[in-house]
Amino acid sequence: MSWIYLIIAGISEIAWAFGLKYSEGFTNIMPTIFTIAGIIFSFYLFSKSIRDIPIGTAYAVFTGIGAAGTVIIGMLFLNETASLLKIILVLILLSGIIGLKLSSNDKEEDKGGAA
């Protein structure tokens, strides 16, 4: 369950990152509320995930999902530049996230639970 919390926390990091963009320095009220709620939700789930996942692994996965997702959404929907190099680097980042999951020896696995 901790990995599910962590993945959802990473995805919600993508949402609040875009909320920051549209909050215009916390002057636009609705995006500001959305952003603050997203930050709280994201960090709540992140804190639940680190009960069973080592902090180094969890933080790298959390920020990696947020970074990769934000870059991908920006390229697909916000007309940010997409280049072959940028796509390759995002794929490398995602490979690292998957590698961390595969090499993780978290407490859930030690307890015999599902990872």
Rank of each mutant, 00 (worst) to 15 (best):
G66I: 06
L89W: 14
K86F: 07
V71C: 06
G112W: 06
S103P: 01
M1E: 10
I50G: 03
T35I: 07
D106Y: 05
G56M: 10
V90E: 10
I36D: 05
L94I: 15
F46V: 00
A15F: 03
G96H: 02
I98C: 12
E13Y: 02
T70E: 04
F41S: 05
D52T: 09
W16Y: 15
L78E: 14
E80R: 09
S2P: 01
Y5T: 07
E13N: 10
T63Y: 05
Y59K: 09
A15T: 06
F77M: 15
A58T: 10
L6Y: 07
A82V: 12
F46I: 10
I97N: 03
T27E: 14
I29Q: 09
L85Q: 15
D52E: 15
S49H: 05
T27H: 12
I98N: 05
L102E: 04
R51W: 09
G112L: 09
A58S: 15
K101T: 06
V90K: 09
S2W: 01
S103D: 08
T63W: 01
K21C: 07
S47Q: 11
T35R: 00
A37W: 12
K86D: 06
F43T: 08
V71F: 02
G64K: 05
N105M: 13
L20S: 04
S104E: 14
S12F: 02
I50T: 12
I97H: 12
P31S: 11
F43N: 14
G38Q: 11
S12G: 01
G66N: 11
S47M: 12
G99S: 14
S47R: 07
Y22H: 15
A67Q: 07
I14K: 00
P31V: 13
I55R: 08
V61L: 04
G74Y: 03
I55H: 13
I92K: 13
F41Q: 02
D106C: 03
A15H: 00
E108T: 05
L84E: 14
T35K: 00
A67W: 00
L85K: 14
V90C: 11
A82P: 02
G96E: 01
S47I: 04
S2N: 14
A17Y: 08
T35W: 03
I73P: 03
I4P: 07
L85H: 10
F43D: 14
Y59N: 01
I40Q: 10
I36Q: 06
F34H: 09
G38A: 12
A15V: 13
K111T: 08
I73K: 08
G96N: 03
R51M: 10
K111S: 02
G69C: 13
P31G: 13
L102S: 05
A37L: 15
Y22S: 15
G96A: 12
D52Q: 13
L100S: 04
T70F: 08
A9C: 04
I97E: 02
K86P: 04
N28P: 05
I36G: 11
M1G: 11
L94G: 02
A82M: 14
W16L: 10
K101P: 05
I92M: 08
I8F: 06
S83I: 02
V71K: 01
A67C: 01
F77S: 11
F34W: 13
A114C: 01
A60M: 12
G19E: 08
Y44H: 13
W3I: 06
T32Y: 00
S47E: 12
T57M: 10
D106E: 14
T81W: 03
G19W: 00
W16C: 05
D110R: 08
I7N: 06
F34G: 11
T81S: 13
